[in-house]
Simulated scan of single mutants.
Amino acid sequence: MFPTGNTHMDAQRAFDKASRAQRRSAIVNRLRRQCAECLRLQVHDTTFRAVRHASGVKEIPLEEISATVEPARARQFDADFRPSGKRTRARWERLWVAEQRGEVIPPISVVRTHAGYAVIDGHHRVSVAKSRGAITIDAVVSAA
């Protein structure tokens, strides 16, 4: 995707591209007769409110983020953190524009799980970072 010079238009195009990729993946999944649950963002069941230990900010690989602790967010993003609806569009585009301008984005909050990390706060930031091709993201990691 070539930048147009208009960051808001570029953000809209980036969201549309990510949203189309999510829909395309769902269609391919149905045609292959694979389980619908395979594409959904997994919900990590934890009582993360009683966190025992929180480390400082560190970089974690985006590919290791595989779940969320909020069931409502699991409906807004697929397993690859692609946005699945218009409800996420405004915030997603604002974050994309902020990142394009080089603004400081706060770190996400995650909890360590047996399969990687589950997002507590920062679902849109993860989605934008993945769509922009980032490899790592700043995060505050908590132990479950």
Score class of each variant (00 low, 15 high):
N6M: 09
V51L: 15
H44D: 08
S142H: 14
S66Q: 11
P106I: 08
T47G: 11
R24F: 08
A72W: 05
R101D: 06
R13S: 04
H123E: 03
R112A: 12
A72C: 07
T88D: 10
R49H: 12
R125H: 06
A54E: 12
R32P: 04
T113S: 06
V69L: 00
I120A: 08
A72M: 07
G122C: 09
P3E: 11
W96R: 03
R49K: 09
S19W: 07
I60E: 01
S109I: 11
S109H: 13
L62I: 10
R101Y: 03
R20E: 14
N6E: 05
H8W: 10
L95S: 14
D121H: 01
H44V: 06
F2Y: 06
A90Q: 04
D78Y: 05
R89M: 11
D121R: 00
Y117A: 07
A67P: 13
A67V: 13
D16F: 08
S55Q: 11
V126F: 02
R73G: 14
A21I: 10
P83A: 04
A90T: 02
A21K: 06
P83Y: 01
T7N: 09
P106L: 06
V43A: 01
V111H: 03
S84A: 09
Q12Y: 00
F81I: 03
T136Y: 08
G102K: 04
R82Q: 12
S25F: 14
Q42K: 12
R75G: 05
P71H: 03
Q12P: 04
R24G: 07
L31N: 05
R89I: 10
R101L: 13
S84Y: 03
L31E: 10
V69P: 01
A18Y: 00
M1P: 06
C35Y: 12
R101M: 08
T68I: 03
F48V: 04
G85F: 05
S66G: 13
W92F: 05
I60L: 00
L95N: 14
N6A: 09
A26L: 03
E64Q: 15
A144G: 08
G56I: 04
G102C: 06
D45N: 12
W96Y: 06
V97L: 01
M9Q: 13
C38Y: 13
V126A: 00
V141E: 04
E99Q: 13
R73F: 10
S109C: 10
A50V: 07
